[in-house]
Write a protein that binds this DNA or RNA. Sequence first.
DNA 1: ATAATAATAGGAGATATCTCATATTGAGGT
DNA 2: ACCTCAATATGAGATATCTCCTATTATTAT
Lengths: 223, 223
Amino acid sequence: MEKINLKDYAENFEDTYNDIQETFPKEVLPQAIICKFSSNEYIVRFDEDIQYLFFLLDGRAKIYIVHENGKRALIQFLKKNDFIGDLSLIEVEKNLKDVVAINECTCLAIPLASSREHLLNDKLFLYNLSRYLGDKLLKRTDHYTAMQDYEFKNRLARYILQIENDGFFQEKHTETAEYVGVSYRHLLYTLNQFHEEGLLEKRGRKYFIINKEKLERLSSKRD
Amino acid sequence: MEKINLKDYAENFEDTYNDIQETFPKEVLPQAIICKFSSNEYIVRFDEDIQYLFFLLDGRAKIYIVHENGKRALIQFLKKNDFIGDLSLIEVEKNLKDVVAINECTCLAIPLASSREHLLNDKLFLYNLSRYLGDKLLKRTDHYTAMQDYEFKNRLARYILQIENDGFFQEKHTETAEYVGVSYRHLLYTLNQFHEEGLLEKRGRKYFIINKEKLERLSSKRD
DNA sequence: ATAATAATAGGAGATATCTCATATTGAGGT
DNA sequence: ACCTCAATATGAGATATCTCCTATTATTAT
């Protein structure tokens, strides 16, 4: 992890810095720094205290919950403008999560010890935080209730459409399996099935969507 | 649904009224009323606009999410001091949920139209709302990730211990099945299995826990 | 009180999904 | 460039869980 002075960062990324100034009360910024994490680096570990509230400025990361039985579930992908440590800030978190950078991640890091009080006394920040948490709650609920009410091929179709890029589905299968909550083996079975049914085509190790309509039908219906 | 004047209610339930005054900014209370819902009555319907922010003062209710494929999932049980309509208040909700009273429910009802602005400008209320949402997010995540990482008998053991009363498990099987996310049929299989393994005993139509330790072991481990 | 509806209960068979084993290929570190 | 570890791929067999059916009790509503 590499630390950068916020001032130095601000000079090179004016637009992002403006966003930051609108999101956080000005009292906390003097203490904030920029942290850069490299791919696969842990931003937060489930068994260590968290010292900062992070705000993701660039890059992608993923949150895992670690269970006592050793299994872990990928519960969310993080992107620009997501918080890390929001639940620790408001002190409701009991079990921390693992947060791992997927590619290089640039984060604003606000020290909790010195800034908590400022943050929790800022009306606008609290309002935004509520909305952020509410939105997260809804998305997570949708994700998980879908697991319960749709069978896997429907959920997979949905996920592919959601994360597809230029018609290509190129997520790591290991990660996909953890996120959609099935075994790696079964994911491959279903991907093959999609292939045989003429929904996807394999190009190198990526899959290309060749029948988007059918995929869309599958994603929202039974079938 | 029966409406009661807040003043009248306050006279009979002083303690609860004190709680209310601490939870909500005083500007909104003059417009608030008390609503009583009877057992199985809908407090909110997924296809109708919500006009009030409700705060549950007494009784139990349950939230369902309704999916396009017709299935619905019980996502949360509500009890005293839970909000209903919190996500609509902050306007992040897209798909409403069904909320159904389990027994008689008494709610404080605050009209959204006239009170939204007051609520969202009150620092203390926003702080409490954030904590409430954060806590809800954590609990819901735990519930659902457990579905993914533990097999059903573990989850059922956990649920029984969580909701047991004086050693009796007496929830409706239909509701339990919807909440823990398995078919009614499979729930019965597993309950019978617990019976055969000497964990539960059937008394009338309730189950009585006769080996709590073993149930606890089952609830947190593989096995 | 009686009909109607919801909850409990269990049988039989189908299948979605898992576990374990094994081989091949790709990427990161020194 | 070489080694190691992670990711991809697939087979075979086991099982957790589902769907559909049919009775028998409770509850609720008229």
